[in-house]
Amino acid sequence: MSETKPSKTDAEWRAELTPEQYAVCRCSATEPPFSGKWYRHKEAGTYVCAACHAQLFASDAKYDSGSGWPSYYQPIAGAAVTEHEDESHGMRRVEIRCAHCDSHLGHVFPDGPKPTGLRYCINSVALDFVPDGP
């Protein structure tokens, strides 16, 4: 993956992503709870951005929050995601985006487990997975 942030047009993003990925990653939609491919996934590896393949979350930081979306207590590196105030839908939340391509991933909440106390609640459709090993 290139260190340079992608500078793609809306048409290029639409051509590269599935309609569901485009809706979530580029338009901040949310997939229905308990429906995502990675919700109950337990294989060892790394969850990457579906849009640009940047590393986002290690499988050992994943836990079952019961929320209906894949949840992690921390990103793979502090600079992997960015945080943004989100006041949509009559709520105050903290949106999480991929730091590399600015794709919407989900939200972070202060009700997670130790050691961070955070719950990164992420849409499966915004993720891909790279298993550990050969």
Rank of each mutant, 00 (worst) to 15 (best):
E3S: 04
E3D: 11
S7L: 12
K8S: 00
D10E: 06
R14F: 13
R14K: 15
E16L: 09
E16S: 08
L17M: 04
L17V: 06
T18G: 15
T18W: 12
T18Q: 05
E20Y: 02
Y22R: 05
A23K: 05
A23M: 00
S28I: 13
S28M: 11
A29E: 14
A29F: 13
A29T: 12
P33S: 15
P33N: 14
P33E: 12
F34L: 09
F34V: 13
F34S: 11
G36F: 14
W38P: 03
Y39Q: 12
H41V: 03
K42Q: 11
K42V: 08
E43W: 04
A44W: 10
A44S: 09
G45I: 02
G45N: 04
A50K: 01
A50G: 00
A50V: 00
A50P: 00
A51G: 01
C52G: 00
A54V: 09
Q55I: 12
L56P: 01
L56S: 07
F57T: 00
F57N: 01
A58G: 09
A58L: 12
S59C: 07
S59T: 03
D60V: 07
A61Y: 01
A61T: 13
Y63W: 05
Y63H: 04
S65H: 05
S65D: 00
G66K: 10
G66I: 09
S67T: 15
G68L: 07
G68R: 10
W69A: 03
S71N: 00
S71M: 01
Y73F: 11
A77S: 13
G78I: 10
A79E: 15
A79Y: 09
A79F: 14
A80C: 10
A80D: 11
E83H: 10
E83A: 15
E83R: 12
H84N: 04
H84K: 09
D86Y: 10
M91S: 12
M91C: 01
R92Q: 13
V94G: 01
E95P: 01
I96T: 05
R97L: 10
H100M: 11
H100C: 07
C101P: 08
D102P: 08
S103M: 12
L105G: 03
L105H: 02
G106C: 08
H107V: 05
H107Y: 07
H107M: 04
V108Y: 04
F109P: 06
P110I: 13
P110Q: 08
D111G: 08
D111F: 02
D111V: 02
G112M: 03
K114G: 14
K114N: 12
K114M: 09
K114P: 11
P115A: 14
T116N: 04
G117Y: 03
G117N: 01
Y120E: 03
C121T: 04
C121L: 03
S124D: 02
V125E: 06
V125W: 07
L127V: 00
F129T: 04
P131Y: 05
P131G: 03
D132N: 06
D132M: 01
G133K: 07
P134N: 15
P134M: 15
